[in-house]
Computed example of a mutant assay.
Amino acid sequence: MLLTTERLILRRFRASDAPVLSAYRSDPEVARYQSWEAPFPLERAQIAVRNFAAGSPDKAGHFQYAVELAAEETLIGDVYVRLHDNLRQAEIGFTFAGPYQKRGFATEAVSAVLDRLFGRQGLHKVTGECDARNVRSAALMERLGFRREGLLRQQTFLKGEWTDDLLYGLLATEWRGRPEDRPRRPVSPRA
């Protein structure tokens, strides 16, 4: 399973990705609003990569796309999908290495995954959730057409404090209904 965009390859994780995953997840700024603590040891990254590689993007459960910068063949981040048992809904999340943030890569990668989820897989709705202080993640979801559906006050106890969570949702009709408005690059699926 592979998705490609103008600049990116979204693929299954492989064992050789563990050191890079460990490195970017060990960055305190990358980990700030995430569930893991920095540093993210290599041993933990090796286990994570094995688990990521075992998933299927077409079956209910968790799947993590490795996002590679095509020109450099470098892992720059990941996009998470949890496909619900009904195969009609999913949750999405994303993490990108610091040097590859603010360059449109996350928008491009998440757009490719949304194209697959809504187009090829026929999903009805995709949701996203982020720490309310994570304004860049919230902005990315809003740029992609997600609507803010709620605020859960002091919902998550994370790194020693209670945090508020923002809830976002995107319907298939909203994604398909405004392709000319979406900030994305051409996407082509490959088997």
Rank of each mutant, 00 (worst) to 15 (best):
L170C: 10
P39G: 03
V135L: 15
A66C: 08
L166F: 10
N86I: 04
F157V: 07
M141S: 08
V49F: 01
L42M: 07
A54Q: 12
N51H: 08
E174M: 14
A138P: 04
S137H: 05
G104D: 03
L87Q: 11
F157P: 00
A97D: 04
K159M: 05
F40R: 00
W162D: 03
R103L: 12
P39W: 03
L123H: 07
F94C: 01
G93T: 03
Q101C: 05
A71F: 03
Q101L: 01
E72M: 10
D85N: 10
G55C: 08
A54Y: 06
H124N: 15
D115H: 13
R136F: 01
N134E: 06
R136L: 06
F52P: 01
A97C: 01
W175E: 11
L151F: 07
E161T: 14
G77S: 06
D131K: 06
R44D: 13
L158M: 13
Y65V: 00
G104P: 05
V113L: 06
K125L: 12
V135W: 04
Y168L: 06
F118V: 11
G98N: 07
K159E: 05
R50D: 10
L114V: 10
A97V: 01
P179F: 09
E108K: 06
V110E: 00
K59Q: 15
L83E: 02
V67W: 00
F118I: 11
F94R: 00
L117A: 11
L123I: 12
W175S: 08
K125M: 11
P41F: 09
L123T: 06
F96S: 01
T74Q: 10
T107F: 02
Q155G: 02
N134D: 12
A70G: 03
A112V: 11
R82F: 11
K159V: 05
A45K: 02
R88S: 15
V126I: 15
